[in-house]
Design a binder for these strands. Structure first.
Length: 211
DNA sequence: CTCACGATTAGA
DNA sequence: CTAATCGTGAGA
């Protein structure tokens, strides 16, 4: 277990010292997907704080990736956010009831992103349980559409910066990740993309979506 | 306008 | 294992 953020003081100085900057997100999605493992996703609304350790990610390189919404440069009303400068969220609706959350990476015009598949709860667990309608830790935040529900993510998040005091990624200095890599999940429709090893996760972390 | 489908999940 | 469920995007 990571140290609970609520055990520390979440001051703006604390956030400023650890926040991942825009320049970090300007990198290739594979690099970002790997290096944000173990970092903390933090969302503040007034006094309420929700935070989780990132334990599972997938890289979506964009134009050359037949699993990506931006394959061959496809640009629609929904996917236009993917073409932003790295560092904002890309959120979309799926299966009639869920929200999927990505972090846009790379330079403006290059539609890369990192899909966040699972978090380990760190702060605001009671609120998460309420939003999920369950106290079952095994199903609270392990899964791309479970954690977004626990964090009340919806369409209003698409395009929002993840480099602000109310929403950011906190770098965890000195972390020792036991990294694992594999094929992405749920993209069997992509003949090329399904073969590539673009899924990253923390080995043996119980909050990873698949065992 | 119509229609097929999905970067998933809950439940039988 | 399958049903649920509806916004999105492609095509008529």
């Amino acid at each position: 277990m990571v140290q609970s953020l609520s055990e520390k003081k979440i001051t703006s100085e604390y956030i400023a010292a650890r926040m991942r900057k825009k320049t970090f997100f300007a990198r290739d999605c594979r690099y970002v997907a790997e290096h944000i493992l173990g970092d903390i996703l933090l969302i503040k609304k007034g006094r309420s704080v929700l935070a989780g350790k990132i334990v599972e990610t997938e890289a979506y390189p964009g134009k050359e990736d037949d699993a990506s919404h931006a394959f061959k440069g496809k640009n629609t009303k929904r996917t236009s956010t993917l073409y932003s400068q790295g560092g904002v969220a890309y959120v979309y609706f799926i299966y009639g009831k869920y929200w999927c959350f990505n972090i846009v990476t790379g330079k403006k015009g290059d539609p890369q992103s990192v899909f966040i598949r699972a978090l380990e709860p760190v702060c605001g667990m009671e609120k998460m349980k309420k939003l999920r309608g369950t106290g079952d830790m095994g199903k609270l935040t392990c899964g791309p559409c479970r954690w977004t529900q626990a964090f009340a993510i919806d369409r209003t998040w698409s395009g929002r910066p993840l480099t602000s005091f109310s929403a950011c990624i906190l770098k965890q200095a000195g972390k020792k990740n036991n990294l694992a890599r594999g094929q992405r999940i749920g993209v069997d429709y992509a003949e090329q993309g399904r073969e590539e090893f673009l899924r990253f996760y923390l080995k043996d972390n119980p909050f990873v979506s698949k065992k």
